[in-house]
Write a protein that binds this DNA or RNA. Structure first.
Lengths: 191, 191
DNA sequence: CGATTATAGTTGCTCACGCAGTCGTTGGGC
DNA sequence: GCCCAACGACTGCGTGAGCAACTATAATCG
């Protein structure tokens, strides 16, 4: 118990303040800590709200990406590329969501290897029920925390970091980059 | 089959451009997308580099938090609080790292229920081998992507979002107001 | 054409993680 | 001192995810 207190009491605002000659004081570490903790915080809020609507974070991402695609559908592989899930992961999440009636599979008439995941009416309804609360949480804990210029600066910085570091696995969500496009192009060509 | 053509032919550069009145164009969604993709991108880079040193991201976080704590040790519970792992998750990751010789358990003399996870010499060495490359990656893909003012603005924004939304990720900081803490705590546990 | 190669999706295997239950320990109330 | 609720750590079980192997289909090259 004494140790428990030792652990918490001397920590003031930032854990790294105290160890002056510590490598962990490095501002780079701090920067990553901020980014990752902001992400973790928002993730937790999202998870809690999505759970109220019976969706996991992955399922929400899947249904969202499908819903905003033409025809409310994507090929399994393209879905995998957009979600940073493996193709087997997509197979299984689509399995679950199909079982729950949120999605269906549809055969691709031109390429019998491919199949589409399509959002059902029930899936769209579920998404529509979920989205307002989701947007409200974003506003409450993220965008609403900053005045417009600060938010713009934040997003500008994030965009540059994202453009530099993002693995093509997560690309394509709100801004499609050239390599992704080439990828999708070849997919389209194939059909 | 009419669907097939609808799907690909008219799509030009951005598959989402056509749904002009689309909810997914909402700037809040875009903002979250940027934050999450930046995080995912950096995560992937980290994972690749850590793998070269035989560490997973979770293991790196564990050993880092231990190494910067007094005595290079933390109680299992405190470690769980800092890592957003459950206590059972901590039990298991410490199991693995103990098996690999990076950590040891040490009984707490004051409370026989508690035990410490302590970084071994081999663990410190492993960490020291890993850190330079880690810092270089941060610089290469994150901090070095922005000029100082832009970086400062980014970090300032992130700090505000983190302070608002963080689910107690910085356990050991006491600048959390109680109501927030309870809330975020339970949310973090759940995820 | 026919053979080789590449691609789409699924499945078996394994592992990491959380939840809930358990056991030993602690400390407060009587 | 005794009892019992709270606490710290560990374990059984279920779930979700990736890798690699596999099947079926498509594209390529001779």
């Amino acid at each position: 118990m004494s140790n428990y207190n030792r652990n918490n009491i001397p920590r003031v605002k930032h854990w790294y303040d105290e160890r002056v000659t510590n490598v962990f004081d490095d501002p780079r570490i701090t920067a990553v800590g901020l980014l990752f903790e902001a992400h973790a915080g928002l993730s937790a809020r999202f998870t809690a709200q999505l759970e109220e609507h019976g969706l996991s974070a992955v399922e929400f991402e899947v249904i969202t990406r499908l819903a905003r695609s033409p025809g409310n559908q994507l090929r399994m592989t393209d879905l995998a590329a957009q979600t940073s899930l493996s193709t087997s992961g997509v197979t299984r999440v689509v399995d679950r969501m199909e079982r729950d009636g949120l999605l269906t599979r549809r055969a691709c008439p031109n390429d019998r290897r491919s199949s589409y995941a399509v959002v059902t009416a029930a899936g769209m309804q579920r998404l529509n029920e979920t989205l307002p609360g989701h947007l409200q949480i974003i506003e409450q804990w993220f965008t609403g925390q900053l005045d417009p210029e600060a938010l713009a600066a934040l997003l500008d910085g994030l965009r540059r970091v994202r453009d530099a570091a993002h693995p093509c696995a997560t690309a394509g969500s709100d801004d499609v980059d050239p390599e992704q496009r080439a990828d999708a192009d070849s997919a389209a060509r194939r059909q």
